Simulated assay, not measured.
Amino acid sequence: MIKEVIVVEGRDDTVAVKRAVDADTIETGGSAINANTIKRIKLAQERRGVIILTDPDHAGERIRKIISQRVPGCKHAFIPEADATRKGDIGVENASPEAIRTALSRVHTEYDESEGLIDWEDLIEAGLIVHPNAAARRMAMGNILGIGYCNGKQFHKRLRIFKISREEFAKALTQIEKEGL
């Protein structure tokens, strides 16, 4: 059983997570997270720890951000968009048990204080921003690093808050370049 409580968006996500692993979940009920849900997440964080596993879309990122701001120290798991999409629908409920297990095996902890290990110039040089193929390169690198896809500014922030080292960054960059991105 996974020690931490996994925060998901809805009932179908809970079903998908329970097919993949033995874990307890808290459902946010979508992006309208109420005060009682935040209280339950805070209590779970204090007692067992929390892993946020939301959909890899705008609404999922919004939920993740709201929880992170109100409940410090959460862990984050990311399912790549390609692994969470079925018939044009994006969501944790569409991910295979293996994709969910992989995401949970690559959990990252958010740190309040962190020095930027990777700077903005590194992102430019790596073609992750200000590059014709920047979005695809960020998506590939985010999947390799297990931090998900986002815009350039948010990607830079995630590299810092999850303390991605220069070595991890360089290894992922080499991998995406080998893939021709």
Rank of each mutant, 00 (worst) to 15 (best):
Glu113Asn: 05
Ile118Ala: 08
Asp122Lys: 00
Ile124Ala: 12
Ala95Gly: 05
Glu115Phe: 15
Asn94Ala: 06
Leu123Glu: 12
Ser96Asn: 01
Pro97Leu: 06
Glu110Ala: 11
Glu98Leu: 14
Leu123Asn: 01
Leu104Pro: 06
Val107Glu: 05
Glu121Arg: 04
Thr85Cys: 10
Asp112Pro: 05
Ala82His: 14
Leu117Arg: 07
Thr85Ala: 04
Ala99Phe: 13
Asp112Cys: 05
Arg86Asp: 15
Arg101Leu: 01
Asp122Phe: 04
Asp89Gly: 05
Gly127Lys: 03
Gly88Asn: 02
Pro97Val: 02
Gly88Thr: 08
Leu117Gly: 10
Asn94Arg: 11
Glu113Tyr: 12
Val92His: 11
Arg101Lys: 15
Glu110His: 08
Ser105Gln: 12
Ile124Asn: 04
Leu123Trp: 05
Asn94Ile: 08
Ser105Ile: 00
Leu117Tyr: 05
Leu117His: 06
Leu117Thr: 13
Ser96Asp: 12
Gly127Pro: 15
Thr109Arg: 11
Glu98Phe: 08
Ser105Glu: 02
Ala126Arg: 01
Leu123Arg: 00
Lys87Phe: 05
Gly88Met: 01
Thr102Met: 14
Arg106Val: 00
Glu110Val: 13
Thr109Met: 06
Asp89Leu: 12
Ser105Gly: 05
Glu93Ser: 13
Glu110Trp: 05
Lys87Asp: 15
Gly88Glu: 00
Ala103Cys: 02
Tyr111Trp: 14
Asp112Met: 05
Arg101Ser: 11
